[in-house]
């Protein structure tokens, strides 16, 4: 089954909506709570990244019996140096975003830690695509 969510850049009021909806779906599907927790952390961070950095984005969540696949695609400034962005503590977030307690440079590392695979492709000036896979059957 597939779910799609739109994410609005700059709108922190709705950040977490996709993560919260997916959490409910996974609970209804009786997915292992440990897996749900990891997926929720990774998805929330991805959502916040779009809100904090991009103009708009789309989240696609595809669930089958073997894995949960999440694609987070945004129109935004892109990431010039992905290795740098993956480093804990590195952030390009604005002062306002940091004041809210985001932008500590923990988002992408949290996503990597909480997914089985993480793939990022980015084009500067256009946007970023983040793909996360979590396997249900090991």
């Amino acid at each position: 089954m597939e779910f799609n969510y739109e994410v609005e850049g700059g709108n922190f009021a709705k950040a977490g909506y996709a993560a919260s909806s997916v959490k409910k779906v996974l609970k209804e599907l009786n997915v292992d709570p440990k897996i749900i927790k990891r997926v929720v952390v990774a998805l929330y961070e991805g959502e916040v990244n779009v809100v904090a950095h991009a103009y708009r984005g789309n989240i696609k969540v595809d669930i089958d019996t073997e894995r949960i696949f999440i694609e987070i695609k945004d129109e935004g400034p892109g990431i010039p140096d992905i290795n740098l962005a993956m480093q804990v503590g590195y952030s390009t977030a604005s002062a306002m975003v940091r004041e809210m307690g985001f932008g500590a440079g923990m988002g992408l590392p949290n996503m990597k830690r909480n997914a089985d695979t993480l793939d990022i492709s980015s084009s500067v000036g256009k946007g970023t695509v983040v793909e996360l896979t979590t396997y249900l059957v090991k």
Partner: peptide
Amino acid sequence: LLSDVMGNADEGQVWITLQTH
């Protein structure tokens, strides 16, 4: 730091913070 809480807090804990949003 919200990402710190996202990454490290556990279910059932009481979260102490100065963030109000």
